[in-house]
């Protein structure tokens, strides 16, 4: 019997710790599939962040560093500068990347560091229990914004991809979502293009993936998807923000 589908070699057989309905699993799979399709699994070094995906080192089947909170782009820079022929990527959440790690992500992009960042944006701190992130939407409740985020107190949610797209060293910037099969296919395409961009040494590449956090949002997985579609996508529009002229 012909095999029509099998699990990617880019992931190990370990059971993940992610909550039911969390989209990290989908994003892990997309990244792993892309690296397998590009035939670079054995030449890839990943960097896991601090956050829900800290334990990504137990799931990705490739050499991997665990990095301090927000520092993944700096760690990836060290790896890439030593091994410029390897594929290096960071996998970071929005607390990690958009808050404590803003300096590191901006300067990795600014240097045109030949790395790829998978930026998982679920508008909240997941691992620590649902605190407000820079990406938390106006009115969205968080354990440190119990009445909902206000502009007066915390400012508008930070649009990291738009900001990074203004930086010359950022060769590829795209925001995608994993809320539907069609968008998941588009997300995979963007992730692939980002890695191709790195391999072609065009510069820094990042894919922001809008994701759900049913647990901390206090919603069922299905309602969480709907909340993402109704609230996140209007504020964080999906689509390409920057790509090299020829990839």
């Amino acid at each position: 019997m012909a095999v029509v589908f099998q699990k990617t070699k880019g992931l190990l057989d370990n059971q993940t710790h992610y909550c039911p309905g969390c989209t990290h699993g989908i994003i892990h799979r997309l990244v792993a599939e892309v690296l397998e399709e590009l035939d670079v699994l054995g030449d890839t070094i990943a960097v896991a962040p601090v956050g829900c995906s800290t334990l990504a080192y137990d799931y990705f089947n490739m050499d991997i560093h665990q990095a301090a909170h927000g520092r993944a782009p700096a760690v990836a820079t060290g790896i890439k500068r030593v091994q410029p022929d390897k594929v290096v990527f960071t996998y970071q959440g929005d607390g990690d990347l958009a808050s404590i790690g803003t300096a590191e992500i901006i300067h990795a992009a600014h240097r045109g560091e030949k790395i790829t960042t998978i930026f998982v944006n679920n508008a909240i701190y997941g691992m620590t229990g649902g605190q407000m992130a820079p990406t938390t939407l106006i009115g969205q409740r968080a354990t440190t914004a119990p009445l909902g985020r206000t502009v007066e107190h915390s400012g508008m949610p930070l649009k990291v991809s738009e900001m990074l797209a203004t930086i010359n060293g950022a060769a590829f910037v795209e925001r995608v979502s994993v809320d539907s099969p069609a968008n998941i296919r588009k997300a995979k395409k963007a992730i692939k293009e980002a890695f191709e961009c790195q391999i072609a040494r065009k510069g820094f590449s990042i894919v922001e993936v809008l994701s759900t956090c049913p647990t901390n949002w206090g919603l069922t997985p299905i309602d969480a998807i709907k909340w993402l579609q109704d609230n996140m996508i209007p504020y964080y529009p999906i689509g390409n923000l920057r790509r090299p002229e020829e990839v």
């Binding site: 990095a67 520092r71 700096a74 990836a76 790896i79 500068r81 030593v82 091994q83 590191e104 901006i106």
Partner: peptide, 26 residues
């Protein structure tokens, strides 16, 4: 070799962490 001026001391030591992890004298 490679010299890189980092954006901060924090970034610099984390670059060291990355470089050292892949086996370099750093």
């Amino acid at each position: 070799g490679v010299f890189l001026q980092a954006e901060s001391e924090v970034a610099a030591i984390n670059m060291v962490y990355g470089a050292s992890g892949c086996g370099a004298r750093v």
